[in-house]
């Protein structure tokens, strides 16, 4: 019994690392630019297809293809901010919601056209490998994904807390008007926020590829979890999103293990509703980091 519980927790933590990459991106965009990016999951999907094609065409390992998917998605993020989002900022929220929602639909349908709805998988030498620790089973691909997800999250935290640009992003998320009075150019900070958020989504996609199939609607699996984690972790709070994502992963995994294979999300959304009822501003209580 204890072993089953420990195994479920480990499975949850490992996938929670991927959720964290997606939700940190959502919360970063929300915190800095003050928009909700409904298309975040689609950028995970793009990251997956980038790694899929690099693997099948050039034999590049999906983990190595992070070096391509992250910069490509960073540039896409900057372009989307510059040419699309920038034009709807400062209006009411509705055009912003429609913009990212439309972007999501557009990307999904373009992918259906270009890649078809078929599931695409990449089989690496470590896709079926696992460590056995005691009676526990730790898949190598998921462990690698988790470790790299934590490293990337840590790198973002260091960026936000030690560089001038990172501090400018935090300042802009805490008080946009006063940030401008400090000489911070909001458009520049917003573009970097979009770039980083999309690069993290792309990284999630590449890291998923050795153990998860790519298909045009795959992003919706992850964006749903990301939104729950972002709300639980307090909107705009990067550390909160990270911790909440790991919790979500564990909650989902426990649900699957002890309630039923289809019931993982029931536990997740119960947790969301209970938290919102008791602490409406999230577990971190309205604080932004």
């Amino acid at each position: 019994m204890l072993e089953i519980l420990a195994q479920a927790v480990i499975n949850g933590l490992l996938i929670g690392g991927i959720y964290a990459l997606v939700s940190i991106g959502v919360t970063l965009i929300f915190g800095v630019v003050k928009i909700v990016n409904f298309a975040q999951g689609e950028f995970v999907m793009i990251g997956m297809y980038i790694s899929f094609f690099l693997a099948t065409q050039f034999g590049i390992d999906p983990i190595v293809s992070l070096a391509v998917s992250m910069p490509v998605l960073f540039v896409i993020g900057v372009l989307i901010q510059h040419f699309l989002i920038r034009r709807v900022l400062g209006l009411n929220d509705l055009p912003q919601i429609f913009l990212t929602f439309a972007l999501s639909l557009l990307i999904v349908n373009l992918s259906l056209m270009l890649f078809t709805a078929n599931y695409r998988t990449v089989h690496t030498w470590y896709s079926d490998e696992a460590f056995r620790v005691g009676g526990l089973y730790i898949p190598v691909a998921k462990l690698v994904a988790f470790v790299l997800a934590m490293i990337l999250s840590g790198a973002l935290w260091i960026f936000l807390h030690t560089t001038d640009l990172g501090k400018a992003m935090r300042a802009a998320s805490q008080n946009r008007d006063v940030a401008q009075l400090m000489g911070i150019n909001p458009n520049r900070v917003f573009a970097v926020a979009l770039g980083i958020a999309l690069a993290l989504a792309g990284a999630a996609g590449s890291l998923l590829m050795p153990f998860y199939p790519a298909y045009p609607l795959v992003g919706q699996v992850f964006v749903l979890m990301a939104f729950v984690a972002v709300v639980l972790g307090t909107l705009g709070n990067v550390i909160g999103a990270l911790i909440a994502s790991l919790l979500m992963g564990v909650a989902e995994s426990l649900g699957i293990q002890f309630i039923g294979a289809d019931s993982g999300l029931i536990v997740v959304f119960m947790l969301l509703l209970i938290t919102l009822a008791l602490r409406p501003s999230g577990l971190a209580g309205g604080r932004r980091r």
Binding site: R170, A171, Q174, N175, D177, V178, A179, R287, R288
Partner: peptide, 8 residues
């Protein structure tokens, strides 16, 4: 109203 960055 000062408006310091509270979480910094």
């Amino acid at each position: 109203g000062r408006q310091v960055f509270p979480e910094m």
